[in-house]
Design a protein around this nucleic acid. Sequence first.
DNA 1: CCCTAACCGGACCCACCGGTCCGCTTTGTG
DNA 2: CACAAAGCGGACCGGTGGGTCCGGTTAGGG
Lengths: 212, 212
Amino acid sequence: MPESTKPLRADAERNRRLLLDAAAEAFAEHGLDVSVGEIARRAGVGQGTVFRRFPTKEHLIAAVVVDRMHQASARGRELLAAPDPGAAVFELLTAMVKAAQTDRALFEAVDDIFLANEDIREAHDDLVDSLDQLLRRAQDAGAVRDDVGALDLLMMFKGVCEASRPFNNVDIAARQLDLVRAALRPVPASERLQGRPPTLADIERARVGGER
Amino acid sequence: MPESTKPLRADAERNRRLLLDAAAEAFAEHGLDVSVGEIARRAGVGQGTVFRRFPTKEHLIAAVVVDRMHQASARGRELLAAPDPGAAVFELLTAMVKAAQTDRALFEAVDDIFLANEDIREAHDDLVDSLDQLLRRAQDAGAVRDDVGALDLLMMFKGVCEASRPFNNVDIAARQLDLVRAALRPVPASERLQGRPPTLADIERARVGGER
DNA sequence: CCCTAACCGGACCCACCGGTCCGCTTTGTG
DNA sequence: CACAAAGCGGACCGGTGGGTCCGGTTAGGG
């Protein structure tokens, strides 16, 4: 995607992919604590190779995260063409939950690495943008209450992931998503939320404010 | 509480408290990865003292978690006497969210340690029981839809915690809780959830099934 | 086909971390 | 008040994990 820095040699590019895949797999199985050596072994590559491509373990994690985020926002943009705007929103959310259930360790890490990583921020903003379009379309169709924003959705998504984790079970996640659906149904004026939906700027503020 | 093993000497008991507090504080600030040495330093005791009281770092974490869980269930039982049953439920949830926002690292750990720790399981079951009573009371009063169970609530609670984390802001958490409130409003029969609420047995099943 | 720059593997380094050990101090009981 | 038992601190240990280094290998342009 953002390949501003000159293209890699063929073997280097191949190894990069191997590493990204091996890392994702390893993280999914054993959490973020797997050693870089283990990842290298899985990829069939020397440890030195890892650190030449990704200057630090954190960079490697971030690269995998960015990968996944782009997948999600791409899916969101596809769904903009789906017939039922309301269903499309929940379809994306469902897909994201399923993905996050596999790669849970990664999504846990987002908030922590977020702080320092420009690439993740960018991918995240892109995902929010994608979600935003999808949501607006559903709201215009009257399928979703219009006092919530894309970040409200994203938060509820993260909530569902976290909540269903100990059950390790898609049915439970589906139940939670049904509750989200209930929460998002249009409501009479008397029951509207007060305050405005959160924005990326709110996160930014917490970010810089939270640095001790 | 469960003080079956003989009482500690005065200085030992004092140090135990110091350690528990120092640990909670350290975890809140830097996550669970703080070294035992650092915790000992904060508590003003030697590292050996830590390991005499808590045979392993995990035991120390578990002890802090149990502490917090008992606080929550106690608060729940107090609230059984509150005048408005519906409001009482949300008051407990709000309090729990606030507590979890401070001790977020601890709550993240619950699922992982859960697997092996009897004490945490016990405290957790106790909390579920407390929540259950509060919830049933609200349902009898018609304030909450009756197709959800205590674990549904607990899951949504965890969801809100996770969701509002990057904002690091109580207002945002309050907004999320309002959405939970919307999700929990009584609904017509056509919109009831299918399936039964999750139970502790479901967690247990995932637990033993999930051991690789 | 050849040569160089880019790339590769994995041995190696070092900081740190959980946990142990032991000589000294404190507690509280008789 | 004396003295055993319980507690204490912190030096120490083995292991592990992130990150470096360098002699050998390969890609691919001229």
